[in-house]
Design a protein around this nucleic acid. Structure first.
Lengths: 119, 119
DNA sequence: ACTCGCTATGTCCTTAATGACATAGCGTAA
DNA sequence: TTACGCTATGTCATTAAGGACATAGCGAGT
């Protein structure tokens, strides 16, 4: 195995934010991709998931949070699209901060665990 | 069912330790319980999971790690039992250390996220 | 008016995950 | 030598999750 430049985090937390609402790497990656692509369907294509599934994930977020994470529009020349709301963007940012914080903080403990796995 | 005084951490990481081997809260809790109870079946009963399932989880750990996480014995007055091997105990300890480290380190970021969920 | 690409939603089928139940084997103590 | 409580393993049914398709509606541009 070769070394990689960007270190893939070993810890990608799934958070339980009360009730039915959970937030893990899948939804975050999707959300981020939608932000980049400007539409749910384009993001779904790039991530290789069916549109329906992507939409469903977003729907749980929109319903779970007090206000939607996406602004969507149907119709128009390009068919419409989707953009992150301030809350959606804040979510991605907060998750990213959390993730890097966790991986930084847990370096030592992770080393112990990976050592236990392959000595 | 017993009540627990300790606060349930918001972050309970699932770790991917290479290949098929993953380690999350379920297996750790089971392992810990087995250590307390001295048998797989007693732990399974207390956790409310079928023995088969508990055994299966342990089996993946025993196969995934270079040496087993449990010492088991069938037969005898009490029917036998199971005890954590040094590796098993180290696993639980390392996971606990990781978990508390993560929750401590990420307090601020977690607050941001929970705020986003319920304002 | 028609087209296009998107959002939004319903239905169905297949497959993976899980639980329930059954059973064999073991060894110590009575 | 019998009984007991555990480990270990197989089989089967049920359920939950995921994917594949189908379809309606929208609206700016041509």
């Amino acid at each position: 195995m070769t070394t990689t430049k960007t270190i893939r985090p070993l810890v990608r937390p799934r958070l339980y934010l009360g009730g039915e609402l959970s937030l893990g790497p899948g939804k975050i990656d999707l959300l981020r991709k939608i932000g980049e692509c400007g539409s749910i369907s384009a993001a779904a294509r790039e991530l290789g998931v069916p549109y329906k599934r992507a939409w469903l994930l977003i729907d749980t977020l929109n319903k779970g949070f007090p206000s939607p994470v996406l602004d969507t529009a149907a119709g128009g020349r390009s068919g419409g699209g989707a953009r992150l709301t301030p809350r959606g963007a804040a979510l991605v940012a907060a998750y990213d901060a959390l993730e890097s914080r966790l991986n930084e903080a847990a370096r030592k403990e992770l080393r112990v665990l990976t050592q236990l796995a392959k000595p």
